[in-house]
Design a binder for these strands. Structure first.
Length: 843
RNA sequence: GCGGGCGUGGCGGAGUCGGCAGACGCAGGGAACUUAAAAUUCCCCGGGCGAGAGCCCGCGUGGGUUCGAAUCCCACCGCCCGCACCA
């Protein structure tokens, strides 16, 4: 090279920094990987593929985690293209959200400018790393051209009664005077102010995701996702089966007659063991009956504050339960007996009905509370063993924990002697007959709270009219755009505090002036719950997406992203697709057919962060070794699902291998140029090595095991080296190198493209068809067979392929190193053709 | 506590349809080339015994099934990730 004029006769060295940026820029500027025009209605499954990667959030430059996702995804996509698929591979930015707003608050930045600056930085890194996205489909969720349709989506749900407003307990930061998103609450404190977050009632917008609870649960069986993600969703949905049963207050109380209180239980069979009754402290009946009791109010306030703070830091078992005896009793409808009523912190207002029948004998929490308060623990079940045999009766005085196993009912009136499962069904039936309740399925899943008192998000397209109520903004008035002159220094919501924005509207229904805009914005998870639909037609300003395109392209064939979205984003997207299906806008039941969760990139065993001083950024890696080495290092380190500890891997090693590929290719070109190209004596081995590599690497690519695919390509590289060591190398060497470059192209797109051109090809290596192997080369005339005696390897023999057991056995027995172990009667012979023979002898 | 996953050389990892454990690489050691270095190329590289051929041990631990187990079954230990007072 030019800075070493004295060594200019040396072969050109591999210098990725000199060749990668220009190629990267060309791919981007030429839109080399855009899929225009789109195949749509003719999509038949075989010819097209929708590959999706979770779009980045633009807070700063790309980090190593992004590089990991995109590298895996890009290898997948480039490989699929070479196998003939037409791949839709879009990119965009999840560009609304709190960091931009916080930057505005803290540093006076303009959130829009801040966001787009970060996007540009990320975009150039993505281009530099050679990720083959379709740059025609770029979208930004903060662009009015996008969020117009996010607002449309909201109105669709509003029209379907799947979006509604009600009062709910939300996270309130008393210092910043604002509601916080759950993700802004860290260990019970506001992330900015450090103040303990309170639960306060506030009117909020919700999406009725619970309407789809059963389908969201059942359809998990139809999608190809990691089991742990499905399990996380199952747990989050939290379906349980039981019954609702009505208890009455023992006295008439404030309304003049006994009040009815419904409880939810999964163990109706244990109702005869309900020896007390517990309300959530905020339960309305309790609030009414304890009104004016200052001690009670203090208890309730402490509980509501305490529960949120301590839930995150303390194990429930260590904490003890807090409760107070209320000033009334309840009647157990089955026994007719009066039982004491309590309010306690271990009963939650927002699950079930906010009240429970407490069965200390059969529920650990009730047991603990009963012990603590000296309440009766009544045995109503006698344990049975595995074969249904009766075991010892329970003794409440000596028990240390509740009994939750199988048994038969005792002390349970007409149900005595029934197995507990049978008693459960009988009691459910009887409850219905007597009008005391009904069978009931319950879910842990809550409706999705989507409103935020923040201003860097899509305004909720609703107008509140004094006479008409909540009125949808007419579609032709969308988008409801954010004003450009928000003041982010105000306390509370900048949108709410804007001098004119919310008032500059009349009611679309009655034309009345006494109307204001909704000042809340939508959760950023709403933006990301449908972006994969917008990718189908990002420039279309007449509709969110064309129905035929949605039907053609959904579900996404492969979705790659982090497991941190196991529940939220992936559950919300599933809900949105199902809701849009029911609105007639698409046909798919699920958004993402297959999901791949890539591992994390960590450093020295810990997640990377600036504060820990262990941060590695993609830039410093590709500025040293190049993008190909960065990509190769990540994929060679381990399987895509596994974490990568950057301290354990070696971009240097990857660079060394790529340099070897470079040298071998240039040496071959030199042979051809000087007319000395001719295959040497090792040509047959090399031919075979090519076939082995094609077959092996193809299998690995199909299984997305890029680490072993690379290992096989290294082996092929070493075979080329061995075959050309003597300076020989002709057509077969060229074929070996071209195959190597083709097989490596999806992983290291730059060096392969460059060398492909240097080998004299006009087009791109990425347009080459995936190679197939001459499998006849894989067939061996002779095979090595392992000889075992009593299961231990004692020798190896060479035999013709397909040799019979008799022939192999004879040859094995004749082998000197084997014969010495054959001292006894041959009792059994196990023969695995062409692989192994095991001679079992008995002394 | 409940649910899920994982334990293989100094390190990342192969092998996981039961059939030669440690592919491929990193780190390390040695050699060639060089005035020297870098780069490159070659050799060695789980532990023990042995001059050597080779033998024994070895995939978290202990059992089991089998001609044969890293792989299948049982129990235990350890680590990681979810969820966590959900009635």
């Amino acid at each position: 090279m030019s800075d070493h004029p004295d060594v200019q006769d040396e072969p050109e060295r591999y210098d990725p920094l000199a060749l990668e940026p220009a190629i990267a820029r060309r791919w981007h500027d030429d839109r080399a990987y855009s899929l225009t025009p789109r195949p749509s209605a003719d999509r038949d499954g075989a010819g097209t593929f929708y590959a999706l990667t979770m779009f980045p959030y633009p807070s700063g430059d790309l980090h190593m985690g992004h590089a990991e996702i995109f590298t895996i995804h890009d290898a997948l996509v480039r490989h699929l293209r070479m196998t003939g698929k037409r791949v839709l591979n879009p990119i965009g930015w999840d560009a609304f959200g709190l960091p931009a707003e916080n930057a505005a608050r803290n540093r006076g930045a303009d959130p829009k400018q801040w966001t787009y600056d970060n996007i540009e930085e990320q975009r150039s890194t993505i281009i530099r790393l050679g990720y083959s996205f379709d740059w025609d489909t770029v979208l930004y969720t903060c662009d009015p051209a996008y969020y117009r349709w996010t607002q449309w989506l909201f109105l669709e749900l509003f029209d379907a009664n799947l979006a509604y407003r009600r009062e709910a307990l939300v996270n309130w930061d008393p210092v910043d005077q604002t509601v916080l998103a759950n993700e802004q609450v860290v260990d019970g404190r506001g992330e900015r102010s450090g103040a303990i977050v309170q639960r306060v009632p506030r009117t909020q917008w919700f999406f009725r995701i619970t309407d789809y609870a059963d389908e969201l649960l059942d359809d998990l069986e139809t999608i190809d996702w990691p089991e742990r993600v499905k399990n996380a969703q199952r747990a989050w949905i939290g379906r349980s089966e039981g019954a609702e049963i009505t208890f009455k207050t023992a006295d008439a109380g404030p309304i003049g007659e006994p009040e009815e209180v419904v409880v939810y239980t999964t163990r109706p069979d244990t109702i005869f063991g309900a020896t007390y009754f517990v309300f959530a402290p905020e339960h309305p009946i309790v609030t009414a009956r304890m009104a004016g009791d200052a001690d009670y109010d203090a208890f309730r306030d402490e509980v509501s504050r305490r529960s949120e703070v301590e839930r995150v830091s303390t194990m429930s078992a260590d904490r003890g339960k807090r409760g107070v005896r209320l000033n009334f009793d309840m009647i157990n409808p089955f026994t007719g007996g009066s039982i004491p009523a309590y309010a306690a912190d271990y009963v939650l207002m927002d699950y079930g009905t906010g009240a429970i029948m407490a069965v200390p004998i059969g529920d650990q929490r009730d047991f603990e509370f009963a012990r603590q308060e000296g309440l009766e623990i009544r045995p109503i079940i006698r344990p049975t063993g595995e074969d249904g045999e009766l075991l010892d009766e329970l003794d409440p005085d000596t028990m240390t924990e509740a009994y939750v196993g199988p048994g038969v009912m005792v002390n349970s009136g007409d149900y005595d002697g029934l197995p507990w499962e049978e008693a459960k069904q009988r009691i459910i039936d009887d409850v219905s007959v007597k009008g005391w309740g009904a069978e009931r399925v319950n879910y842990r899943l809550r409706d999705w709270l989507v409103s935020r008192q923040r201003s860097w998000g899509p305004p909720i397209p609703i107008i509140h009219c004094a006479t008409c109520g909540e009125i949808a903004v007419p579609l032709e008035d969308l988008p409801v755009a954010l004003p450009d002159d928000l003041d982010f220094q105000v306390q509370g919501s900048p949108l709410d505090q804007h001098p004119t924005w919310k008032h500059d509207v009349v009611c679309p229904e009655c034309g009345g002036e006494d109307a204001v805009r909704d000042v809340d914005t939508l959760d950023t998870f709403v933006d990301s719950s449908w972006y994969f639909l917008r990718y189908l037609s990002p420039q279309d300003d007449t509709r969110a997406w064309p129905k035929d395109a949605a039907n053609a392209w959904l579900p996404v064939d492969q979705y790659t992203g982090g497991v941190e979205h196991a529940v939220l984003h992936l559950l919300y997207s599933r809900f949105v697709v199902k809701a849009m299906r029911d609105r007639g806008h698409l046909a798919a039941d699920e958004p993402f057919q297959a999901l791949l969760n890539q591992g994390q990139v960590i450093m020295d065993g810990a997640s990377m962060s600036k504060s820990k001083g262990n941060l590695v950024v993609p830039g410093e890696v590709y500025d040293t070794y190049g993008a190909d080495a960065l990509r190769g290092t990540m994929l060679f380190a381990s399987a895509p699902e596994d974490d990568i500890d950057w301290a354990d891997v070696s971009p240097t090693g990857m660079h060394k291998w790529l340099s070897r590929v470079w040298r071998l290719t240039l040496a071959h070109i030199d042979r051809e140029t000087t007319g000395s190209a001719a295959d040497g004596p090792a040509v047959d081995e090399l031919r075979k090595a090519v076939a082995v590599a094609v077959v092996g690497a193809s299998e690995d690519y199909d299984a997305r095991k890029y680490n072993t695919a690379i290992a096989k390509l290294m082996t092929l590289t070493n075979a080329v080296l061995d075959a050309t060591r003597d300076g020989s190398g002709g057509e077969v060497a060229r074929e070996a190198l071209e195959t190597l470059l083709t097989l490596l192209a999806p992983i290291c797109p730059f060096i392969t493209e460059e060398l492909w051109h240097r080998l004299g090809h006009e087009g791109s290596v990425h347009d080459v068809a995936w190679p197939t192997a001459d499998t006849s080369l894989l067939f061996e005339d002779e095979v090595e067979i392992v000889v075992q005696v009593n299961g231990k390897v004692r020798g190896r023999i060479t035999a013709p392929a397909g040799a019979s057991q008799d022939d192999v056995q004879a040859a094995a027995a004749a082998d000197a190193s084997v014969a010495e172990y054959l001292d006894g009667d041959l009792v059994k012979v196990v023969h695995v053709p062409d692989k192994l023979i095991n001679l079992v002898v008995k002394a």
